[in-house]
């Protein structure tokens, strides 16, 4: 099982889940598809040796951001969408072809200019993506920004408490 094989397997599942999210009828099924998609993207990060990013992906996106989505679904009365069969299939085919053309064109443009990202060796990704490297930078060079993030999160907490405060009747 090579990383490439795993990468393509995960990529196929991720794209399928993304499509499922788009064409799901009820918002709750859409949310479930999105969770599958987010997990697959976390797996993609792992195949590229970005373990920290993978963990953050699951923690923040599949955790916190999904909570926000579910909140919106719960609070707003989101009705189920009309069935896919009501959507013109020619629109879908045209969309897929258009995206394929865009991908080809951007690939051609990127490879003829120097916009194409250089190939990265597996060893160098291990040297940047692992938790140990991130921690070393975070707690030494970026210690002060870390405290600033703490203050920012404190401000977010206080803002949320103030927003949800019961206004006393006068």
């Amino acid at each position: 099982m090579t990383p490439q094989f795993l990468f393509f397997c995960l990529a196929i599942v991720a794209i399928t889940a993304a499509l499922g999210m788009l064409i799901a009828r009820s918002p709750v099924s859409s949310a479930l598809w999105l969770i599958l998609n987010l997990f697959c993207v976390a797996g993609l990060y792992l195949t590229m040796n970005a373990q920290f990013l993978a963990v953050v992906q699951v923690l923040v996106y599949a955790g916190a951001i999904m909570v926000l989505f579910l909140f919106v679904i719960m609070l707003l009365n989101v009705a189920a969408l009309p069935s896919v069969r009501d959507i013109d299939w020619r629109l879908g085919v045209g969309f897929v072809l258009g995206v394929a053309l865009l991908a080809q064109l951007s690939y051609a443009i990127a490879s003829s200019t120097d916009l194409m990202p250089a190939e990265v060796s597996l060893e160098s990704t291990v040297a940047t993506g692992s938790v140990e490297v991130v921690a070393k930078e975070l707690f030494t060079r970026f210690a002060m920004p870390l405290e600033m993030i703490g203050v920012l999160l404190l401000a977010a907490t206080i803002g949320a408490v103030l927003l949800a405060r019961r206004v006393s009747p006068k």
Binding site: L59, A64, V67, L138
Partner: peptide, 27 residues
């Protein structure tokens, strides 16, 4: 109740905190 919204916001804040605690715990 708007309290549910508050709990969700607090959860997100501490979720982001965990992101920074995690490399600390590992290393």
């Amino acid at each position: 109740s708007v309290k549910f919204y508050l709990v969700a916001m607090i959860f997100i804040v501490f979720d982001v905190e965990v992101v920074f605690l995690y490399p600390w715990a590992v290393t």
